[in-house]
């Protein structure tokens, strides 16, 4: 029976990415290695590689007991990595932070990967990174947003006039001196422009790729379609009370996502747990998310046994 990993199996490391030193911890398998690196990525809550209440530490040590080389990392500007961070842009996930670690694992002879995106931004980073990496044997996307909302507000549901009125208000104009605010406004403006362009293109060229289609951002749909084409197993996991779940279900009922999930032999699977896992605000949600992840990875990797 396998044994859970401890710090005895762990090695800290720094890798250089985008001009910053990215910190991570590698947990070596406590059983016969499977030659698969499991990259455990946190969401956008400004918590480091440990994740809320050490959820990523638990996952990494569980996966090591299943024969994976588990890697947990701090994004730039978070935890023990260097750099600065103001926001987690869903349309530009931090793929560059993760790729050097993948490369290091490949150089060590661990040339297959699974990605575990532990909620929201982590799921989107896992998705986008997996689409750029060969030899991916599984991707776990937990509470993945399907659109690139700035600041959790749905710009599609907010009339353009609202933004125009706000943009011209003295309060907004006063805050334009703040670079962070300027970036936030620019993201909203980009979204509205992309959404409008998408709607126009969808009308003109039905079925063609568009920035926003069937309620999904291209930054969600395109890498998912890429993984589907490569027949990479993908778990999409939500809590039934997650706001992103209802949006996913709406998109699921439309042609694009439906085609991916319902295609013969599709390896994209949807599973749900009770409650909400998006922000991992309750221990029960954390437990459910860890079990969902490890159970599914055990199922798709033949011969994997669970830790004692």
């Amino acid at each position: 029976m396998s044994r859970l990993a401890t710090t005895r199996e762990e090695t800290p490391f720094f890798v250089h990415a985008g001009g910053e030193d990215i910190f991570g911890v590698l947990t070596a398998p406590t059983v016969e290695p499977r030659g698969i690196a499991a990259l455990v990525l946190t969401g956008g809550a400004f918590v480091g590689a440990t994740n809320r209440n050490r959820v990523s530490v638990r996952i990494a040590r569980d996966l090591a007991a299943m024969g994976f080389h588990a890697v947990r990392m701090d994004y730039h500007g978070v935890g023990d990595s260097t750099g600065d961070i103001d926001t987690y842009p869903l349309d530009r996930p931090f793929v560059e932070d993760i790729l050097p670690a993948v490369q290091v694992m490949q150089e060590r002879g661990v040339d297959r990967c699974v990605f575990v995106g532990t909620t929201c931004f982590g799921a989107r980073t896992a998705l986008s990174t997996a689409a750029k990496v060969p030899n991916v044997s599984g991707v776990v996307l937990l509470a993945a947003p399907i659109r690139d909302y700035p600041n959790s507000v749905n710009p599609d549901a907010t009339p353009t006039q609202h933004y125009v009125r706000r943009a011209l208000s003295p309060r907004t104009l006063a805050t334009l001196r703040d670079p962070a605010k300027r970036r936030q406004y620019a993201t909203t403006a980009r979204w509205k422009a992309g959404s409008a362009a998408g709607k126009v293109r969808s009308r003109l060229l039905p079925g063609e790729a568009a920035p926003v289609a069937d309620g999904m951002s291209s930054s969600f749909y395109e890498p998912l379609a890429e993984l589907a084409e490569r027949r990479v197993p993908v778990l999409i996991g939500y809590g039934v009370e997650d706001r992103f779940y209802s949006e996913f279900l709406q998109a699921r009922a439309k042609p694009r996502l439906g085609r991916l999930l319902d295609a013969p032999g599709s390896r994209i699977e949807l599973r749900t747990v009770e409650g909400s896992i998006h922000a991992l605000r309750r221990i029960s949600a954390q437990d459910a998310m860890v079990a969902l992840t490890t159970d599914w990875l055990a199922e798709i990797h033949e011969g994997v046994s669970r830790a004692a």
Partner: peptide
């Protein structure tokens, strides 16, 4: 990956003039 010693990872901040060692003790 730049491991320094047994179970410590090191980064050198030349600009600010210090060495950072993250590790398990």
């Amino acid at each position: 990956m730049r491991d320094a010693g047994a179970n410590v990872a090191t980064r050198i901040d030349e600009e600010l003039g210090f060495v950072e060692e993250a590790g398990f003790f």
